[in-house]
Design a protein around this nucleic acid. Sequence first.
DNA 1: ACTGCTTTGCCTGGACCTAT
DNA 2: ATAGGTCCAGGCAAAGCAGT
Length: 339
Amino acid sequence: MVTIKDVAKMAGVSPSTVSRVIKDHDGISAATKKKVRKIMEESGYAPNIAARNLVTNQSNTIGLVIKSGMHEVNLNPFYSEVNLGVSEACRKEGFSTLTTSATDDASLLAEVKELISSRQVDGFILLYSKEDDPIAAFLSAAGFPYVVIGKDIHNDREAIYVDNDNIQAAVSITELLIGKGYSKITMIVDNDVFAVARDRIRGFEMAMHEAGLSAMGRVVKCGDDPRSISDMLKSLFEDGGPEALLTLDGVLNARIISHLYQMKIRIPADVATATFSDSLLTKFAAPPQTVVDIFPEELGKEAGNEIITLIRDEDKLKRIITVPTRIIERRSTQKEEGR
DNA sequence: ACTGCTTTGCCTGGACCTAT
DNA sequence: ATAGGTCCAGGCAAAGCAGT
């Protein structure tokens, strides 16, 4: 392993001079910089990050906090795409990422505290927004930098928030369904705790109300196990059933259309389906699903950039960044084709 | 064997010094 | 004045060492 001392020896300068060359310091001549850089390249020198972190008292690592079980994290493409965006933003600035996830608040909070006290991270990105969240409350109280991918629920600007306009996204997709001639529309959700779920439900209800279809719109909550999804769908389709189903996200959508297939309910001939968050799951579903693309990678990239600037400048103004959404129409809502 | 102190390894960056 | 050197603190873990 080549260290800064080895480079200094080879270049005939002191380690301080090499350090200053790395930082492109003013007081070093162009000739010396050129010479030292050449030796760094030829010798394959790479700074010892552990030693650097030791002196700067920074880990150059961003913690991603996910409030879900490992199984759900692996299954849901949203997380991997957000992670991709965050990683890209971090890599550019010499940061790396570390993910922690749990379903219950207590163990997640314990994990977050441990990461802070052991100085493993310089800041966090929370991949959710939830009312009365103990982790956000703790980070705010501790003055530890964090960015939320989600909604500023209380509008108190406690942190930087990176989010889509989920109400508007839900309004748009509902309006699309209505515009296609569907009026008996059911929205299926598997949670109503997170702000994103609440906003999408609200947008759906707003659009249905606006179209004078409140009586035709329903929001149905299902559990997590296959049995409860199956029971819910059976009772939903017992007498007539809805004309269109709007699901909360891509994973729930995949589960629902698999059940519909088993029930021999055809999409879109018998029922149209649409959902939020585009991914391979929705793109290559049978049939391909109409979605609101929420650009998770973009959310991750924005959050990554924001947390790094926040770490470097603690006085940075807290703000809300909204990533635009886009509707992608696919076969699952093409009424005329199936009927 | 155990306890407790000292040294070492890592790199950065500021303060200060020296040679031209 | 400029370019570059020396010294040292900072922070922690692990290894080395001395004393009981």
